[in-house]
């Protein structure tokens, strides 16, 4: 493991320990009250979800067009984190929506696009898990198509129906809301980087193990 890893783990742990205090200390939002506090995890996990998806897509495309095995490992690790943070986003979202919109689920653009993106990531993992040899290239192709699909899902669902707070609300947040939110976002980002590093490390070790077995056979 690299030198920065352990200090980063400690900082991340501390941040996750402080975050609840900050969130609890933030004032209640006037109309939504307590339930609005779900935002402090929903929004950062959604951003991390998106970041992981972008990393997975870019690494996949680079791998597909003559990239090194490193890109493939990165893509696989990122895809797993897409599923993890996507699950957090997709679970916390409806819990908020139940109170704020009165429904668990709406076929709104972001919800649908997130769900589809999440499903593509799950399909990606299934392909890697059950696809057998050669599934690395196929998974990279799937990630590429998944990325290309996002604008189409957006346009089609947008024309179909829409209800979701727009992102432009974020800069207008007063500092009493903004500080915990950004703090939480940075914590999630740090956690994401750490998890990604560990997950890539796992793949590296697996590759090493395979190489050892190969050298034994030879």
């Amino acid at each position: 493991m690299k030198k920065w890893f352990m200090p980063a783990v400690i900082v991340c742990g501390l941040m996750f320990a402080i975050a609840p205090v900050l969130i609890a200390g933030a004032p209640y939002e006037s109309t939504m009250g307590l339930v609005q506090k779900i935002f402090y995890v929903h929004l950062p996990s959604a951003w991390t979800f998106l970041l992981a998806a972008i990393i997975c897509g870019v690494a996949s495309v680079r791998y597909l067009f003559g990239g090194a095995a490193r890109q493939d490992r990165l893509a696989w690790a990122a895809a797993e984190l897409v599923v993890l943070f996507g699950a957090i986003t997709l679970v916390t979202g409806p819990l908020w929506a139940r109170k704020a919109w009165g429904v668990w689920w709406q076929w709104d653009v972001r919800l649908t696009a997130s769900l589809m993106g999440w499903m593509v990531a799950v399909a990606y993992l299934m392909l890697r898990r059950y696809g057998g040899p050669g599934s690395d290239k196929l998974a990279a192709g799937l990630a590429l198509f998944g990325m290309a699909n996002v604008p189409f899902i957006y346009i089609s669902v947008n024309y179909w129906r829409t209800i979701h707070p727009t992102t432009n609300v974020v800069p207008t947040l007063p500092t009493s809301f903004g500080v915990p939110l950004w703090f939480s976002a940075v914590s999630f980002l740090l956690l994401f980087v750490l998890l990604l590093r560990v997950r890539v490390r796992l793949e590296e070790q697996r590759a090493k193990l395979d190489a050892m077995y190969l050298s034994m056979d030879a």
């Binding site: 076929w107 727009t166 609300v169």
Partner: peptide
């Protein structure tokens, strides 16, 4: 509060 962009859902 949110700057919600609502539409016929």
């Amino acid at each position: 509060i949110l700057g919600v962009r609502g539409a016929g859902a």
